[in-house]
């Protein structure tokens, strides 16, 4: 038997990224902008969606939600009162499920998502600050929710997640008066790991700051389209081999 060294030099996540690219093509074909919404468990993703998506169709934005959960349809049930398309995606195989969504799981759920009837698809990932940051699902933008009950140092402990996101929503600010929590320090820590992130202070419970989130969502499709057009021009003129690499 003879041993041969084989040069590979391949990102081990290429297989996932390829499927994410296929998802992306499907989204682009239907002109749907996709948001990957991530947080630790209990940060308030679903409550935020309940608030932020209320009657948003009346303001001209058709939103659908893909709900990723380890088990159950509690979150999807809560969102059903919004009268928007909500699709449940469980990661459980019967013995405890995946801790994140990957491109293939999202792909398997796509046939149930009415892409031709929505402008924005929000994919609510499984609550977790580590794994979801690793796996692209074909999204245009990533949002994370962190809450003021979690500790100011979280950006320094989970830099991969905080660096991956374009918008960081600090939730539960209505609780600040009861807590010994330095929200300015949290924001400084976010900026230390991700200077370009937009940071919003929100209470999904009282509604404080939620309008800002709605405005951000409503502006997203046009901004993504403008960036894609710019990248496309850029690619044609300067970098013929340019790939839209994940951030």
């Amino acid at each position: 038997m003879h041993r041969t060294k084989v040069r590979v030099v391949e990102d081990a996540l290429d297989a996932n990224n390829t499927i994410a690219g296929a998802n992306r093509s499907d989204f682009d074909r239907s002109d749907v902008t996709v948001v990957n919404l991530m947080s630790a468990p209990g940060a308030g993703k679903t409550t935020l969606l309940e608030r932020a998506l209320e009657d948003i169709a009346e303001e001209g934005l058709r939103v659908g939600v893909l709900e990723g959960d380890v088990q159950g349809s509690f979150d999807a049930d809560r969102l059903s009162v919004l009268h928007i398309p909500v699709v449940q995606l469980n990661t459980d195989n019967g013995f405890g499920g995946e801790c994140h969504l990957d491109a293939n799981m999202v792909r398997s759920a796509l046939p149930a998502v009415p892409l031709d009837k929505i402008d924005v698809l929000i994919v609510e990932n499984v609550g977790n600050l580590v794994c979801p940051a690793e796996f692209r699902i074909g999204e245009d933008s990533r949002i994370m929710v962190c809450s003021v009950t979690e500790g100011e140092d979280k950006p320094l402990k989970y830099p991969l997640m905080f660096r991956a996101c374009e918008l960081v929503i600090i939730n539960k600010v209505d609780l600040l008066q009861h807590l010994d929590f330095d929200v300015d320090r949290l924001e400084a820590n976010i900026k230390q790991v991700n200077h370009d992130a937009t940071v919003m202070r929100v209470s999904a419970k009282t509604g404080e700051g939620v309008d800002e989130v709605r405005a951000w969502l409503k502006a997203l499709p046009a901004r993504v389209a403008a960036e894609a057009a710019h990248d496309h021009d850029h690619a044609d003129h300067d970098h013929p081999d340019h790939e839209h690499a994940p951030a």
């Binding site: 038997m1 003879h2 041993r3 041969t4 060294k5 084989v6 040069r7 590979v8 030099v9 391949e10 990102d11 081990a12 996540l13 900026k191 230390q192 200077h195």
Partner: peptide
């Protein structure tokens, strides 16, 4: 912070493998 980018440190790459050939 404005113009800082990651030069290295985000790699997760299979560089090479050794296999048994007939």
């Amino acid at each position: 912070p404005g113009a800082v980018e990651v030069a290295t440190g985000e790699e997760f790459m299979v560089e090479s493998i050794e296999v048994e050939d007939e």
